[in-house]
Amino acid sequence: MSAVIETKNLTKVYEGGRRGQDVHALKNLTLTVSTGEIFGYLGPNGSGKTTTIKMLLSLMFPTSGSIAILGRKDYGASDVKRKIGYLPEGAYYPEFLKGEEVLRYYGQLYGLHGSTLEKRISEVLDIVGMSRARKRLVRGYSKGMRQRIGLGQALISDPQILVLDEPTTGLDPIARKEIRDILIRLRDEGKTLLISSHELLEVELISNRVGILYEGDLKAMGSITELLTDRDVTLEVRGASPEALQRLTAKGIQSESQPQGVSLLRVPNTMSVYEVLEYCKNEKITLVSVAPRRETLEELFVRVVGAAQNEKKG
């Protein structure tokens, strides 16, 4: 797979002015996003995600380091930009326009016109599921519909690369699922997607690879399967006394009380499950279920960011 987006030692420093301190928004960021993958770009607020995206789109300029898009160092050139679709977080679409007019406006900015543009507008409205609302004013759109139209404007030129900033934030679960399905379909069509998001479950479900940024530093990057290696086994038990649970905790097993006398025991992969099962049998604790469990992206995120915060503290 060839690199579609490539940054090398990308650094962004905001000058603090005469008295203020310089802010290092991005520190030597080196990352690669390859053809046909969904790359989840994660990080807490202010970690430098949007700064990176803005630099990729020439809305901001790097202090040092380099960017190449589709192998081109002149990534701000019109013919490169023609191949990129961008959905910013919380963008506004003029309320006096109809859905199809919004797409027409952005299509014209890409140099499309006439029947080519009209055909593309219909295709995109189909892709984002807005064909029936094409004649309605944006003023009457729900948040989910606005987000779909936003996705539509990003797709209007049939770009090879899609850069999406928080595409599902604030949407209800149905709308979120629908947007997720659209993104997976786009990836399957061979498009490359860079998604910045706080919705970690969404990212985990659709991304091939993720990068976790903290205060401008890339703290982790890799495929989901590479990064989420921490596994454990969860035992669902009933009838465990508080004393028995305390003894398990002392052995390094996390327990979590559930309704109706049920407890969840998390056995780390460093321990033998059989040993815990034996203990339960001896303590007359009823076993309800045994299930292997993989670490979630959220847990990885908390672990990586937590470690970075501790490192910073000292």
């Binding site: 803005k54 013919d79 961008y86 959905l87 963008a91 900015l109 890409y110 404007q153």
Partner: peptide
């Protein structure tokens, strides 16, 4: 209102 981002990210 961030409209400028959607415009200047196009070949403009």
């Amino acid at each position: 209102n961030k409209v400028i981002y959607t415009v200047l990210s196009k070949p403009i």
